[in-house]
Design a binder for these strands. Structure first.
Lengths: 361, 361
DNA sequence: TTGAAAGCGCTAACAG
DNA sequence: CTGTTAGCGCTTTCAA
């Protein structure tokens, strides 16, 4: 078996408590015993067992992360940001995926709770009505939403929730306003399924805002399955007919925009000559393409970074509270002081958008 | 505090042993006690605490993953494959990043070992001489390399190691042979730093193989920092001069290829008109671009999937062995029966390569 | 089929 | 400054 604190104590000729003390507050041990113990540790190749520590301490210095997928760069970058920040704060990361299936969200969280993670960062399909979040709240586990943007109205609910995101609606509105500014009047939104992503819906609202502000007639969004347009026959028809064809496409994410561009080429249409395409996310490869994909850039890695730091804040604020809570009745202290972090977005201009062809006006 | 098996037992009027039994092998408990216990579990919202179980059982049903970065889609997809497979086998994933710093590899693994993960999947800078792998071996922790490809020669070492990858050298050779087949004779390899990635070196060997087989003069590779060519002034000069300029570029990864194409455009060069560009990795976005990025496709998600399954195999094979080992002396049983999984690669043709312009021949 | 009890590795009182 | 001891949640003999 792997060496434990016990073997170290035995070899050093001290008690296990002394070893533990050295590990936790080195100052409380005399120089020479410290020396002896260090030698034993080195000799045995001892490495403290977090499992024992966690069981005793009731916390694991581990956070859980639940995102839809890693196939979308956006989430990969976010996870990257989380990991970096976690490492800096001496936390570990346990990671899960839902494949955009709302029913997998709960299972993922249950598993993490079994591991007694100290908190959870998640991106859920719909933050508005979500059983998983209720579960987390009931269990009094601190959590922070990433990408999901809490409505301002939620600020009034019993317990405030925390989220880190851009202002999806405003950002989408900016993007569409940019297209309108270029002269586009017939703008179609292409979106991921609303029921798989509340962000998609918020972005559609932003689209509506922009269209209405300009006095233009908004079109219903075309919802498509995960980054593929092949199934959307109504879309294909619309594109085939020059009279119904929009002059610009606004896509709820960059992967969608990229596949849309590919499909348009297959239809023999030029971007931006025949039609402009704008994305959302600002994934790095978009800037390497020709033409550059115009998009709304969200700071994904920073979203992860801020989410983690917010979470750890909450965890460490909750710690003393938990101790206090063991005295009186269940203290109704909110696990997390609701923070709606809205990070700045930016418009990335690119060759994929241009003023509409004169004939279209 | 969260309910434990103890509270459940108390509420159900049985002993904790019985509750534990029900949780582990339900058959060994009478129907009516089972019923009582289930009710208590539901009433209390009890959830087994893995920490306790792990401490007792000595295993955690958790694997550690160490990759250089998630900014490269390749690793994100691999992690995705790992997570999916892990979930199917009821394992959890603890995840870390090294930012391509070899010195961070050990720290990452140390942390994972502290959490008593049952095994580790990693991509290291250099699998040949690597202190981290030695550590893992010394600690008898099963591990599987992903992307790192063990040399056939390693099959003879004391303990065989496991790896899952494509045949980097052969794959690179295929790619360069393809370029040669199109008529290119002056082919330059652009590579990530050899000391940050042994794959890059293996791919360069494949380049040499192809050049030599065709009787062409190979050029030294140009090593560049993580996906940016801006610093490589010698490269800029070579490109500026039509006489020294290669007719084709072979890049050790797709991100590099994409930025190379961007830089070439900035220099006023056409791809593939003035110069062909071929990548390695076959990241999905490459196929969405115009022109499509020709590349060697490696099955990243599958690499993750196979790596995890190989690892779990080893873990579960080691379990009974560990029990047996507590009887006699340290059994010198290799933790893992060295498996060099070589997964098939594929050439993705794309518009980024074409025969060289006649003048160049 | 069930219960009592020991112990996994560690921390935190409490004594000395 | 150091040792003794109890116990975190759980599994697992060993008896009954």
């Amino acid at each position: 078996m792997r060496p434990s604190i016990k073997q170290v104590a035995h070899l050093a000729g001290v008690s296990i408590a002394t070893v533990s003390r050295l590990l936790n507050k080195p100052g409380s041990v005399s120089a020479e015993t410290a020396e002896k113990i260090h030698r034993s540790i080195a000799e045995l190749g001892f490495r403290p067992n977090f499992t024992g520590r966690n069981l005793r301490a009731g916390n694991s210095r581990t956070v859980g992360v639940v995102v839809p997928t890693l196939s979308n760069t956006v989430f990969a970058q976010c996870l990257q940001g989380i990991e970096l920040a976690a490492r800096a704060l001496d936390y570990s990361v346990m990671f899960t995926t839902t494949e955009y299936l709302p029913e997998d969200e709960s299972a993922a969280v249950e598993l993490l709770l079994g591991h007694r993670v100290d908190g959870v960062i998640l991106t859920v399909a719909d933050a508005g009505a979500n059983a998983t979040l209720d579960l987390l709240e009931r269990e009094r586990i601190p959590f922070v939403l990433a990408y999901n943007q809490l409505a301002a109205a939620d600020a009034g609910t019993a317990i405030q929730r925390a989220s880190v995101s851009v202002d999806n609606r405003a950002a989408a509105c900016d993007a569409v306003t940019h297209l309108i500014g270029l002269g586009h009047r017939r703008i179609q939104m292409l979106s991921g399924r609303f029921n798989a992503s509340d962000r998609a819906m918020q972005r559609y609202c932003g689209y509506l805002d922009a269209m209405q502000a300009a006095g233009l007639a908004p079109l219903p969004a075309i919802e498509v399955e995960r980054h593929t347009l092949t199934a959307a026959t109504d879309y294909q028809q619309m594109m085939a007919d020059p009279r119904h064809r929009p002059t610009a496409l606004f896509c709820s994410n960059d992967l969608l925009a990229l596949s849309a561009m590919r499909d348009l080429r297959a239809l023999g249409l030029q971007v931006p000559g025949d039609i402009s395409v704008m994305g959302f996310d600002g994934i790095p490869v978009g800037a390497l393409m020709q033409p550059v994909l115009a998009s709304v850039v969200q700071p994904s890695e920073q979203i992860g970074d801020v989410a983690l730091r917010t979470l750890v804040d909450a965890i460490e604020r909750a710690l003393p509270a938990a101790v206090a809570a063991s005295l009186p009745v269940e203290t109704p202290v909110p696990v997390i002081a609701g923070v709606r972090h809205i990070l700045p977005h930016a418009l990335r201009e690119g060759g994929s958008v241009a003023p509409p062809a004169p004939a279209s006006c």
